[in-house]
Every structure is written in structure tokens, then in C-alpha cells.
Write a protein that binds this DNA or RNA. Structure first.
Lengths: 335, 335
DNA sequence: CTCCTATGTGGAAACGGTTCCACATGCTTT
DNA sequence: AAAGCATGTGGAACCGTTTCCACATAGGAG
């Protein structure tokens, strides 16, 4: 059994309150007494119970991080950013995977509330407004990342998806492409909608008519990118370029193109979104739109911390990162 | 403020103990009473405090997962395995990144102990025996994954690294290679040592003399693979094949080879280790030795759970997975 | 010399649950 | 009729901290 503060007090020949004071560096303690207490602590191998502390302090120095799937290469970087920023302010993080399953999300939120986390960061989860509003109503600080909840007054860390998509498509247009397909993300996600909107916007600016038959929806997975490519590359005349909803889909499309004997970038240009580590490593290296995932994680955590420690106006704040086009080897001028 | 069990009791017109009983499905409660209590719970939006529960139950249904860096593509799969298995038995997991820094590890362990986790899973962390023995002495259940601590009686989930390395090198030998280099992992890690030993063993079986100048050590990173390649490909005569300590290093070597104008697999065969997702996606697709990361994570968690709930003999158990050679496109018969 | 303040210390209540024990009721068994 | 048991309920102690308050001492100010 773990020794308690009482054991320490007895061993050091002092009262409970005194031990607590040296542990927390609060109030007056004679240096000599402090020394005796510290000695007793290490003699007994005393490890204070954060549980007991949390009960009375009504805060746990703990946050919940809800991601769809840590195995998806976009999320580890965000997670790491959150973790690092959390560590710096003494917080520990609970990790939850939901697979975008609303039931799972609700379960995780419940678990986190029972554990009395000081706050929750949602990253790229389904848009279940009720969940978040419930949290907000219960006065649980929340930050949402990689997902825009428009009608909700919640702190968010976002990337300008529309702008990123525009940059990607403009790049293709600048290279002389006119027949540009889009393998979009899930239509129910704001992220997917915004990128699609950016795609349309860029086309419009270049006076290229929007052709719905060149847009197919997927689920941000490699497989759905592969499937989307099979449809899109079958269109006649075949598109000369394609903008994918994310890197994983782009890589799936690359694969489909290779199998179909379509050379990239010679016969087909491809642009992704995210700039996951893999993007630079595949062959040919993927042209993509970079999201600063690590920094987004960090920012989400610092925003959450500010919200937790108060002093922040009640209104939901938004931090919007600007995406950046990274030109590599999957795009090429059309001759 | 959150309503407490007392508020619920009052609202339902019953005693505290009764509320507790319906919450835990324990003891006798009249169905009608149960209904009233449940109603009061949802009326008040009552969320029980796991903190208070944990204090008296002396267990938190919480575990700590310590990984070097979630950003390293081998770890998300393990993490997911742990998480899934943990969820299934009602546990929540604290995630800690250490960057293999012993000081960070010690800090994280301390934090986890203060939080009174029911157990800790170490994955691929530095071999700080003192840390683990300290935990064991303090009767904190521990499982170690992806790291063999020989002289310690601790539960472990391992892969037969030596066997995997042998399979890789034998594959190269079967293809007619004789001058086979090894870009080894960090020499201080058991993993690195075992793979090196497997490499040597395979050479010996084929009566190929061991040439120390063909072995260079790295750190399991892409950069160190790149650096290792620069050294190894400079040896004369140039090796015709190389076995890398892990996939990341292999990919770094691929890159170095490409830059040096050495064609893979025509002029150089490369084998990796791990079979991270990326391995199948790069070009040419990487021949490698597969570790079942997700299953290793799952197994680690179930072992930990068995240890926590007791009934397991005191001796440290080992679960050893067999690695599997996956032949793709970076290896080729030498003509 | 008294009063006040700074310094130092200990006791007890509180945080929100679980669980042991006592007690009440209505049957069945001897 | 008394005893025993199954069912149903409530009170109080306890888990290990923090924190408020009371109290003690010593030195300086008036």
C-alpha cells in the first residue's frame, strides 16, 4: 500500500497540514522542518495521490483528446502537439479513438466527464453539435480542431480549407490543366464541403465551367481514393489533373493510375491535402497542401488551457492557420 | 457545479446507499425505487465522479502508455491496439511521449503513479531497468513491449527479432547476394543487437564471412538511414544488398541510393523491418519483415489486464510473436 | 508593558463516492 | 409462536488530500 501524507507526517513528527505545505510550497514552513518532511517523503517512497488532491481542488490537470483514429497519419502529429503543450503546463492527456462513430464519441465524452477532465479537445470528429453543446452547457471547456462548427460559439483551431483547395486547383490551372477532377472528402463534413467549394471557386475564377461528373466523394481513406480514381479516370475525355480530398486519397489515386498504366505526372497531375510525412516519401513525391498539424495541436492545447484558467472572454475564439501549397513531383505542365 | 449522489438521493427521496446500489447494480433495490433513482439521475444530469469512486475502490480503471514518439509510424498501430483492448474492459489510457529521454520517462512514470494508474505499458523505451524494477517493487503492474529486459521478471510482448533478421538476410542470400551490408539500429537497444545477431547468424549459416566494415549504426530514423547509406554505398566493392534496422532507415537508404544514381532493386536490394503502412506505399514497394504492431498492442493490454485483476502466477510471462517476411519490390535476384 | 504582525504549526472539515453494518418487513420453516 | 431467511433501505465511516481556522511564539512599535 502507498504511504499517505499521514505516514509522512508521523515519520517527520509534524502535522498533516505541515506536510501539505511543504508539498505545495505554500504558507510558512521552517527550512529545518521542510527538510525533515522531505527526508521522510523519500524514506517512505511517498507518492502523493493526485486523486485526493483533485477531489478537493476540483480540477484534475487532465484533458481528453478525441481523435477519429490515431492510425490515420494525419493525427499523430496533432496528438503530439497537444501532448507537448499539455506536458509543459503539467497536464496529462487521455487518448480516445472514435472511428468517427457518433455512439463511440458519446461514450468517450461520458467517460471523460466521469473522470472530471478539465477540458476536451475534439479533432476532426463528426459534427455532432448536441455533444459539444452539452459539454458547453455543463461548463466543460472545449476546443475543436480540424472541424468547423459554424453555428456554435466554441473555441476552434482551423485551417482555411477553401483557400488551400483554391491554391491547389489554381496551381493546376496555372500548369495549363482545364479538365480537373476532384476526389472529395465525405460530403457531410465541413472540411470536405470547404475544399469542394475552394475547388469550385478556383474553376470559376478561371472561367472553367463546373462539371459535376468530375466530382466523386470518398471517406479520406486510401481505398476510397483508389475507388474514386477508378471512376474519375474512366470519364471521357479523361481528366488531365485531379485534386484529392486528402493525401491518403491522393496516394490511393496514384496507385490506381499506376495500375491503369497512366503515368504521373506525365499523363495525370495529382494534388493532395495535409502533407503527411508519407507525402514526401512516396514516388513520385506528392504535390500537396500543407496543414501545420503539430502546431495546430499545440495551439488547440494552449487555447484550451487559457479557457480552463479563465480570463478569456466568453465568446468562442478561432485560430485559423493558412495552408501552404507544397509543389513536388506529381504535378506537371500540360503540353 | 456537478450534482452529487446526495442531490440525486434527495430528489428521488431515498438514501445515499440506495443510489449507489442502483448505480452499481449491486444489492437489493425495488424495481420501482430503481426507476425513481434513474429518473432523478437524468433529471439532474448526474455524472458520477470516477475520482471519488477510485479513492474508495483503490483502482482507477486507467492505465499509462509510454511510447517514444507517437509520430513515429510504428507506434500508432501499437497504441491503437492498446486503446481498443483497454476500451473493451472499461479502461482509459493516458498517453505519454518520451522521445527516448530517460529523464522524461522518469517524469512520466512519476506522473502516472501520482494519478494512481492501475498499470503501465512501456513500448520500445530505453532500457532503464531501475525504473521498471522500481515500479515492480511498488507493485505497479507493468508490461513491456518491443523491448526485451532479460534479467527482469516482467511481462513482455516481443517479436523474435533475431529470427526476423535471419529471414531477411536469408532472403537476400537466396537471391544470390553475398556482399550484404547492415544499417543497424542503436547498439544500446536490445532490438538492435538482436537484429544484428540475426544478420550475423544468417551470414554464418551461408558461410559468408562477417565483415564489420559493412555494418553501420543508426537511430531508427530516416535521416540516420540516409547517412548510413552514404557510408555503406561508398565501400568498395559496393555491397549489392542491404538490410536496414527498420523501415524508416530503409526508406532513408532508398532515397540516398536514388540520389547517388544507384537503381533499386537492379543495382541494390534493400530489406526493411516493421512493415509500417508506408512500406507498401512507397516506390518501389519495400520488402520488409512484418511485425504485427496492432496485435502486439492488444496483447500487451490483455496481459496487463490479467496482471491487474490477478490470478496470474507471479513470474513474468512472455508472448513472442513471429515476424513474417514480406517480399515486395526492393529485392531482386543478383545476376 | 501591551499590542500587533510575521512566522510557524496542528486539527478538522470537506471533496463525492462505496461499503459495512444495522434495522425493518414479510415469508417460510420448525 | 419463534426462528431464520430473503428482500429492501438508510446511516456512518472511510479513501487521501487541501484549506480554513485556531493557536503559539517572538520581535518591533507605540
Amino acid at each position: 500500500m502507498n504511504p499517505t501524507i499521514r505516514d509522512v507526517a508521523q515519520a517527520a513528527g509534524v502535522g498533516l497540514a505541515t506536510v501539505s505545505r511543504v508539498l505545495n510550497d505554500s504558507g510558512y514552513v521552517r527550512p529545518e522542518t521542510r527538510e525533515r518532511v522531505l527526508q521522510a517523503c523519500s524514506d517512505l517512497g511517498f507518492v502523493p495521490s493526485q486523486l485526493a488532491r483533485s477531489m478537493v481542488r476540483r480540477s484534475t490537470a487532465t484533458i481528453g483528446l478525441i481523435v477519429p483514429d490515431i492510425t490515420n497519419p494525419f493525427f499523430p502529429a496533432i496528438t503530439r502537439g497537444v501532448e507537448d503543450a499539455a506536458s509543459e503546463v503539467g497536464y496529462t492527456v487521455f487518448l480516445c479513438n472514435t472511428d468517427n462513430d457518433p455512439a463511440m464519441e458519446a461514450l468517450d465524452v461520458r467517460k471523460l466527464r466521469e473522470r472530471r477532465v478539465d477540458g476536451i479537445i475534439f479533432v476532426g470528429t463528426t459534427d455532432r453539435h448536441e455533444l459539444v453543446t452539452g459539454l458547453l452547457a455543463g461548463e466543460v471547456p472545449v476546443v475543436v480542431t480540424d472541424r468547423q462548427l459554424d453555428d456554435l460559439d466554441v473555441d476552434s483551431v482551423l485551417v482555411n480549407n477553401s483557400l488551400g483547395a483554391q491554391a491547389a486547383v489554381r496551381h493546376l490551372i496555372d500548369l495549363g490543366h482545364r479538365r480537373i477532377a476532384h476526389a472529395a472528402g465525405h460530403p457531410a463534413t465541413r472540411t470536405g464541403q470547404d475544399r469542394l467549394a475552394g475547388y469550385q471557386q478556383a474553376l470559376q475564377e478561371a472561367s472553367i465551367p463546373y462539371d459535376p461528373s468530375l466530382v466523386v466523394f470518398g471517406e479520406y481513406t486510401l481505398e476510397s481514393g483508389y475507388a474514386a480514381a477508378q471512376i474519375l479516370l474512366g470519364r471521357a475525355p479523361r481528366p488531365t489533373a485531379v485534386f484529392a480530398g486528402n493525401d491518403l486519397m491522393a496516394i490511393g489515386m496514384l496507385r490506381a493510375a499506376t495500375e491503369a498504366g497512366i503515368a504521373v505526372p506525365d499523363e495525370l497531375s495529382v494534388v493532395g491535402f495535409d502533407d503527411i510525412q508519407m507525402a514526401a516519401l512516396i514516388h513520385p513525391a506528392l504535390t500537396t497542401v500543407r496543414q501545420p498539424a503539430y502546431d495546430m495541436g499545440r495551439r488547440a492545447m494552449t487555447m484550451l488551457h487559457e479557457r480552463i484558467t479563465g480570463g478569456i472572454p466568453a465568446a468562442g475564439r478561432r485560430h485559423i492557420f493558412q495552408p501552404e501549397l507544397i509543389v513536388r513531383r506529381t504535378t506537371r505542365r500540360r503540353d
